[in-house]
Amino acid sequence: MSKPVVFGQNLSRYYEVSGGVFKKPGLVKALDGASFTLEPGKTLAVVGESGCGKSTLARLVSMIEPPSGGTLEIDGKPAVVGSVEHRKTVQIVFQNPFGSLNPRHKVGTILEEPLRLNTDMDAQARRKRAEETMERVGLRLEHYERYPHMFSGGQRQRIAIARALMLNPRVLVLDEPVSALDLSIQAQVLNLLADLQDELGLAYMFISHDLSVVKHIANEVMVMYLGKVVEAGKTTDLFEKPRHPYTAALLSATPKADPAKKSHRIMLTGELPSPLNPPKGCAFNPRCAYATEECRRSAPKLEAVGVTQVACFHPLG
């Protein structure tokens, strides 16, 4: 096993919400104690529905905001918020390629921006580096002079990936990188990501809600629900034999593109609870078919059950 590049332990992020004049300010636990390691050449997928804290985790790892608690280490040393060192190691690609590129800048300017801000390369060296990276992600050199609105979604996502690669990072945080793309384009971008990982030995943190994509690309999966990790393990193990009732429901709710095998779905009743007012005990208990008194009273810890780690009092067979 290779040495991890990024190691996070018990990372959490709380937000204070003012509840109006007469209410007490509330505390939203957007992320509540997530631990993980990112290794070179490996992909860790973080899955969950909206409000589960997966995007908050992405923002913490890429240091867009500091954690409220827990530690984040890069190469065994604590990460410093906003340090050049951190920026050169971890970069992020966002979901929406239409929002993440400055509409008034040319592709060349967008790509060279990280170099201009963080290195003392001259204009020529920057341009050379930009052109190399463009070639690597499958853009043509004449795209250098164009504006983002002249590109399709897939090409824009290539530009965003190229920008993330400009500083030669070792970790890419991919926040739903293919969710906004069409199926045929999605395959192109996933292939590009796979190629880049093979060539550059990048570690990926792949945030997604689409389990079929996760199953295809990830080595390890972390399932989150309402700010907490409910299950984590190797992709094959987890998809083969989900232990947490939520993982099982999520897997069965994902539509399969095979009309011949109409599987029986586990229907979850009810809605996602609000993070402002999470249920007592296990966050999943109001929607869980196996919930007992114990689940309503106290929250289970993430523990090894078989080959995966599960936070549940009654893990599935």
Partner: peptide, 17 residues
């Protein structure tokens, strides 16, 4: 709060920039 502004911040842009 648009993502391209966050991207520029991740790239290390100063407030003036």
């Amino acid at each position: 709060n648009r993502e391209y502004v966050i991207s520029a911040r991740v790239a290390g842009a100063s407030p003036f920039y």
